[in-house]
Design a protein around this nucleic acid. Structure first.
Lengths: 225, 225
DNA sequence: TAGATTGTTAATCGATTAACAATC
DNA sequence: TAGATTGTTAATCGATTAACAATC
């Protein structure tokens, strides 16, 4: 949960109607994404239905809240049974309007870049790594996943050609800002930052910085107290 | 922001007193962790002071909210100037009671495991990777970071000997549950899951599943609408 | 039918925000 | 002094939850 800047129109189905074209509130969008994550995992494991209580266990969101969130958009569940995993996945994708395919550029072909390129964490959610870049000439041309590593100099042109909307920074901290500038210059609007650099970007660009250690600290706090 | 199950005692400094020994609310703990992340980055970049407005830009938390969160624990800022980065870092660490060192076990010496072991994302926040495991005999004994890779069979014993509190799963989905069971059996209470498996664990164990793709979906929603 | 689980209401509680005096 | 930024109040708004009827 992060992007507080954007105005939030609340889709409270209070008056019966579904929220139609309105924008989701930050909280709702974050929780729906969360449900989607667990549902995708559950689907992979062959689960056919899931109850709000089960979803609650895995997402740590109160089960009433889950039913409330979902019922705002339609009657997706079956009383006494639960929700159909597969159909709920596609419903939520529709609500989040992220049902399509999105192309991403991966910057950095080190261990982290390799790990990302060879996993399907992104592919499972409709993201396709269509280009991988590195500055190291020794790495350029090497096949990683389904791509050959390209030199960073080709970044701008590739972003245009491949219709890339997201850039993923899997590079050392001292290289991050320069590459972020390149991405911004090329028109990328969403940057996923795995480095430890603080990125300065124009207001229309969203940066999401990954911070597993901070998530751990948070978990640890509740363990220690 | 995740762990909803735990009871939350709100430390609202309404009556003047600082919250002393009370437990932080989930929201406050999450936000403080967030501030810590940005402050750590800022410190690395040599920044000496930071204003609530700057912190707001990077964390996407409203600046009034930030001042409110901090002032509940003391007067850390200087009017007209801002907050001293270094001292604020140590104050927040104190509040989160995570100022010490914590030992973690890394499971999986593939690309992701290597990336984690060789980065300092965890080290920066007081986490030390004291053991790395893999099932592949070809990897056992190979040096990774400052450790030699051990065989998974040694997991239980190592957890006891090294006082490990956190297990990080950087393994394929189909291996994750078995290793999670091992970790739980060895007494680990916090599991950080990078696989795409849904983990079943006893209630006293906290699982945090990393889901960059879901974070991306969330960011994308606000971009597309 | 009996058990389970959804959909929904109503009440409470915490988060968020604008505004501004205090002060560096 | 003038400008900037904190600390804090007061009001609003959304999130959370228990409870329960509806229904599979």
């Amino acid at each position: 949960m992060s992007l507080e800047e954007m105005t939030a129109v609340i889709p409270n189905g209070r008056d019966g109607g579904s929220p139609a074209g309105e924008r989701l509130s930050l909280g709702v969008a974050a929780r729906l994404s969360r449900y989607l994550q667990v549902l995708t995992q559950a689907k992979k494991m062959g689960k056919e239905t899931i109850s709000s209580h089960e979803l609650s266990e895995y997402t740590h969101v109160n089960s009433t809240q889950i039913r409330r969130d979902l019922s705002g958009f339609g009657k997706f569940g079956k009383r006494g049974v639960g929700y159909n995993v597969e159909s709920l996945v596609s419903q939520i994708r529709k609500i989040l309007r992220t049902a399509g395919q999105h192309n991403i550029a991966l910057l950095g072909a080190g261990h982290l870049g390799m790990a990302i390129a060879s996993s399907d964490i992104f592919a499972d959610h409709g993201f396709r790594v269509v280009a991988i870049f590195d500055v190291d000439p020794a790495k350029v041309g090497v096949p990683v996943g389904s791509q050959l590593v390209r030199h960073t100099a080709e970044l701008r042109q590739t972003v245009e050609e491949e219709d890339i909307v997201v850039g993923v920074l899997a590079v050392p901290g001292d290289a991050a800002q320069a590459l972020a500038d390149e991405l911004v210059g090329a028109g990328v609007k969403i940057i996923f930052n795995y480095s430890d650099a603080l990125l300065a970007v124009p207001p229309e660009v969203t940066v999401h910085t990954s911070s597993p250690a901070v998530d751990l600290l948070y978990a640890l706090y509740f363990y220690l107290t």
